[in-house]
Simulated scan of single mutants.
Amino acid sequence: MNRHTPGRHDGEAKIRYLDGDFQVITPGSYVRCAVTGKAIPLDELRYWNVDLQEAYADPDAALTRHKQIKDQA
Rank of each mutant, 00 (worst) to 15 (best):
R65L: 01
I40K: 14
P6Y: 08
Q53T: 00
A55T: 00
A39V: 07
K38G: 00
R3F: 14
T5H: 14
L63H: 09
T26G: 02
N2G: 12
Q53F: 03
D71K: 15
R65E: 05
G28D: 06
V24Y: 00
K70W: 15
H66E: 07
W48S: 06
N49G: 07
W48P: 09
L42W: 09
K70M: 12
I25K: 11
V24H: 02
Q53S: 02
R3E: 13
A39N: 13
D10S: 13
I40E: 13
P59M: 05
A62S: 09
L52M: 11
R32E: 13
R16A: 14
A34R: 01
L42I: 08
H66I: 00
P41F: 03
T36V: 02
I15R: 03
Q68E: 14
L18R: 15
M1F: 11
L52I: 01
M1A: 09
S29N: 08
L63M: 09
A39W: 08
R3G: 10
H4V: 04
R46D: 06
N2K: 13
K14S: 12
P41N: 03
Q68G: 02
R16M: 09
I15A: 04
H9D: 15
D51P: 02
A57Q: 12
I69T: 09
H4M: 13
H9Y: 15
D58V: 08
D10M: 12
Q23P: 02
A34C: 04
D71V: 09
W48Q: 04
A62D: 06
H4T: 07
Q53I: 03
Q53W: 01
R65Y: 04
C33Y: 05
A55Q: 03
I40D: 10
R8C: 11
R65P: 01
D43W: 06
D60K: 12
L52A: 13
R46M: 08
D43A: 01
I15C: 02
V35K: 00
T36S: 08
G7E: 07
I69G: 05
A39C: 05
E12P: 08
Y56A: 00
N2A: 13
G28A: 05
Q53H: 04
A62V: 06
K70H: 15
K38V: 14
G37E: 07
D21L: 06
Q23Y: 13
E12Q: 15
I40L: 11
P41V: 05
R8T: 00
Q72P: 01
I15W: 04
P41G: 02
E54T: 02
E44Q: 15
R46S: 10
M1V: 01
H9I: 01
R16I: 09
D51N: 10
V31C: 11
N2M: 12
K70S: 13
D58M: 01
G7T: 08
N49V: 08
D19C: 05
Q68A: 01
S29I: 04
D71Q: 15
A73G: 14
C33K: 02
G37N: 07
